[in-house]
Write a protein that binds this DNA or RNA. Sequence first.
RNA 1: CGGGGUGUAGCGCAGCCUGGUAGCGCAACUGCUUUGGGAGCAGUGGGCCGGAGGUUCAAAUCCUCUCACCCCGACCA
Length: 577
Amino acid sequence: MRQSSGYFPTLREIPKEAEAKSHILMLRAGLIRQLAAGLYTYLPVARRALLKIEQIVREEMDAAGAIEILMPTLQPDSLWKESGRWDVMGPELMRLKDRSDRLFVLGPTHEEVVTNLVAGELRSYRDLPKNLYQIQTKFRDEIRPRFGIVRAREFIMKDGYSFDVDEAGAAHSYQRMFDAYKRMFKRMGLTTMPVEADTGAMGGSHSHEFMVPAAIGEAEIVSCPHCGYQTNRELTPSCPIEETAAKQDSIPPIAEVHTPDLKTVEEVAAFLQTTPQQMIKTMVYTANDKPYVILLRGDHTINEAKVARAVGAPIEMASPEMIFQVTRAAVGFAGPVGLRDCEIWADHHVRTIASGVAGANKTDYHICNVVHGRDYQVNRWEDFRCVDPGDLCPKCRAGNLAMSWGIEIGHVFVLGTKYSKALGAYYTDPNGEQKPMVMGCYGIGVSRILAAIIEEHANETGIDWPVSIAPYHVHLLNLSLKNEAVTQTAEQLYTSLLNAGFGVVLDDRDERPGIKFKDSDLFGFPYQIVVGEKSLQNGTVELLIRSTNVKESISPDSCVNRIQEQFQSDMARLAAA
RNA sequence: CGGGGUGUAGCGCAGCCUGGUAGCGCAACUGCUUUGGGAGCAGUGGGCCGGAGGUUCAAAUCCUCUCACCCCGACCA
């Protein structure tokens, strides 16, 4: 492609709406343009990279026995009502009507549609297993689109679905996908961490998220340097405690303290000259219109997912009205002492508090010398807190947990029979019995991968594409259009590189060298060839290998061979194990 | 949804407090000079100051409403 005739709009300045590295670079290097919140146009350079990502996904999916299809984006409401998700999904499910007032959704995912498809056509155990996938634009009306393409409302996803006769078959399908994912991400030059995702709610079945470490990551990853355990912070069980507060008989009775306007644990601890560890954090949630009071140690953070699991229903933080109803106090002064007619649940670690400080259930007052058993009772002890960095690993109980951030680019999941039962995907087994298919689903954020790659492979001056998904392999700079020898050499190189099968952008614009270099750095194609008067006088052109940042002066004639050789070794490095 | 911020030329911004008919840099266009890391000089074009309503002789500026985009939060007890 000649740069003069292509579409390569680069920006000199940082657009004010962008903060994430990948977002800034994608705008500056002319990869994307925003249409509205969470909606982006992919310009040619991004489009080419996406095609390469998709190609790798297809190759590995096909190699793993999956079969590509393409399903509609628009889906009838009936399927979603059958599966029950019409009510479960919130406003992120985009609902709309057609001209005859029929309800539809813009597909955020396709479990319903595939299951409906398969339910009509796969009837025998002989037809299974099957694994169907598609690469398609999805829509989710996200609460807050973020970081450009990382969390967009419209995005490209590979979604795959497996259908097996039983759990064992599903586990096998799952493993094949897991391995295929590892291979494709490696080929794309991405560092991924497979992270255990859901251990409880899905009945202990398998689920992994593939995370790319990144500063702007949305998910907190917990990892144990000792045993290699990796999970989402939200799902990490807290290590059971050994210590309990020693029984003390000498603790004086409860004392009330005036703490005007002091609501947070930190404020109260500072005021009373105690530590957050000695405080009982009291939080009120509601589920099914009933209040649940949860006690935590003051230095701990509540894990709402764990609370919801214990309740067995979605929970919400209580409104100030509800809090007043329960505690007879303003928000910020709740405590476990004297509460009636409500469940009081506590995190295990509250047991370490011998004599605590808590809200007095009276606005602007706290109480000291609060002793469990003496002053208040707990209906249920559970693990309700988020693990913190340095906590003991719940798996090996030897290492200390570390925390990092990551972008989730893939998710593999054993679904079980939820959708097959709801939507009637049954098969006949060898004994003539009707059984629901056991499903798995496998997602990859194709467009998000683009952002993840740039997060991992870029600096402030530009992108540094892994060869396997570089939109173009070579950026060929003609530094002096007016110089015949230079132009002739550049043109010849352009032709021979194209003939050798490389993707090449020839900068044939009538611009100054500085502009060409800056744009070239922004684009960051793996190999840069500079044809200029200076070096051509010595019969050479300059080749920059971006991955090593090494510049070579070589003769124009040897250029194609040199790049071929480099390309092969670069590709070999990315080859899946 | 809550909080904060921003909307003025294609991009980045000033002007707003203290009303008086719109400006800077980059980009674009023309000419000359320049030509290995975002050139110099001279000139040209480009704005419903996000939108609506109001106050006023007069509104980018003050008031009300509204729309859009961005950031933070939704872990606060």
